[in-house]
Every structure is written in C-alpha cells, then in structure tokens.
C-alpha cells in the first residue's frame, strides 16, 4: 500500500496504490485524515488509478472522508477508478453524491 499527497490550491490530492480492504482501510484513513488536518485545504481528490482492488471497506473510507471534507465546506472527488471499483461505487450510490 502506497499513499502519496500533493496540493493543488485548496485541494489535497491523495494518490492511493494497492488494495483497499478492511485490513488496509484503517491505515489509509489515518494517513489521509492526518494530512488533511495539516494542509491549508478544504477540498480533496482521491486518485484511485493505482487501486487494483477495493471492497466495501473502501466505500466506508470514501464516505468517511466525504463527511470530513463536507464538515469544512469542501468537496470530495474520486478520480480514475478501475471498472470493478466503479461497479462498487455505483452499487453504493456514492457516484450520485461524490464528484467522479
């Protein structure tokens, strides 16, 4: 699992590489939340082009980050999910509340 961060204006760009499941989600959550607190940003983009597996733990992770970003008046976007992950996002109806 590899997580890297960059900043684009007031947006934190989070790039995740690896697999998101219950085992890895807690670590991903902690690292993203810590960085979001440190940076002077209010929006977040999660680049999922490097995520080759995700189960419903990833849905919980995204919903939790959406709540966090919304609490400071920001927006969360999901970038480049692979088809299987898109299927999961569609099922969870996340795609109707998060910008893709």
């Amino acid at each position: 699992m590899d997580i890297s961060f960059s900043r684009d204006g007031n947006t934190l760009v989070v790039s995740i590489k690896g697999e998101i499941d219950h085992h890895t989600a807690a670590m991903v959550r902690e690292r993203i939340d810590a960085r979001f607190l440190m940076e002077p940003v209010k929006n977040m983009v999660i680049d999922m082009s490097g995520v080759n597996f995700m189960d419903s733990a990833g849905i919980g992770l995204i919903m939790g980050r959406m709540n966090r970003v919304s609490s400071v008046g920001g927006k969360l976007s999901i970038k480049s999910p692979k088809p299987q992950i898109k299927k999961l996002l569609k099922l969870s109806k996340i795609e109707s509340i998060v910008e893709m």
């Binding site: 219950h22 989600a25 807690a26 959550r29 189960d55 419903s56 733990a57 849905i59 919980g60 992770l61 919903m63 939790g64 999961l88 099922l91 969870s92």
Partner: peptide, 13 residues
C-alpha cells in the same frame, strides 16, 4: 470501524 454496511449487498449483487 467506519463500515459501510454494504457487505451482504455486495455479495448478493
């Protein structure tokens, strides 16, 4: 645990 509650829905689908 920030679980989404989608586990069984995912399995069924």
């Amino acid at each position: 645990l920030e679980r989404s509650g989608m586990g069984f829905t995912v399995m069924e689908t």
